[in-house]
């Protein structure tokens, strides 16, 4: 995804807390867009910064992800990703908003999302062929919305509730429990807890 070059850059830098929200979205997006390569796997294995200091259910889930990464390899993750999302005929999970909301691919939720992305000036890069309602694409978009101050709190809340909160928690719960999921079970647990954090965050007064 890319921001509309006509849109001026964000005037105010975001807080470290908002940056952290964006980073979790981007981490989830990156891990769900494709199986991690050597460099990403190595970085996830080295996330020791999360095991010290303050803790929370979300931070514990990041620690669990690190531990799952320690027993994984690029090859095992590639095979796991294939079984989960691609498969012979179909993967175990179908990671699209349209599927979760209507039971079909490329349905009205995708059309509505495309209109909204056009309105806020975010477009799919030519190199990316996944439809915009893929879980990884939506995580990446939300990370971009936060990082670049594309939408203020009220509009972010509407975007989250319409395109993310309406289905992504169910997807992450399915991912956590999927038969083929080992490393990705930890990704699902992290995503599930993060959706809970985001739901609480957006329920707070504007």
């Amino acid at each position: 995804m890319a921001a509309d070059p006509r849109r001026p850059p964000a005037e105010d830098p975001i807080s470290i807390e908002e940056q952290s929200r964006a980073d979790v979205y981007r981490l989830l997006g990156a891990l769900l867009a494709a199986a991690p390569g050597e460099e990403v796997l190595s970085l996830v294995q080295g996330m020791h910064g999360y095991t010290g200091g303050a803790s929370s259910p979300l931070i514990e889930a990041v620690g669990d992800l690190k531990r799952a990464a320690e027993t994984a390899s690029v090859e095992s993750l590639g095979a796991e990703y294939y079984r989960l999302f691609i498969g012979l005929g179909r993967g175990e999970l179908v990671p699209y908003a349209s599927w979760y909301l209507t039971g079909y691919l490329m349905e009205t939720p995708l059309a509505a999302l495309r209109q909204e992305l056009q309105r806020i000036g975010i477009e799919r890069q030519a190199a990316i062929s996944e439809p915009e309602d893929h879980v990884a694409a939506l995580c990446e978009v939300m990370g971009m919305i936060i990082c670049e101050n594309v939408l203020q709190f009220d509009e972010q809340k509407t975007f989250f509730e319409t395109y993310i909160g309406s289905w992504m928690g169910r997807f992450f719960a399915d991912l956590r429990q999927a038969d083929a999921a080992v490393f990705y079970s930890a990704v699902g647990a992290l995503g599930e807890r993060f959706m809970g954090v985001e739901t609480t965050y957006f329920a707070m007064p504007a």
Binding site: E17, Q19, D23, V24, A30, E39, L43, G49, Y50, E140
Partner: peptide
């Protein structure tokens, strides 16, 4: 719940490489 210590900086580097 989200930002603890230097974790934000660490995650940024991971997500940049992953992307």
């Amino acid at each position: 719940v989200v930002a603890a210590g230097g974790s934000a900086v660490l995650l940024t580097s991971i997500t940049q490489v992953a992307q």
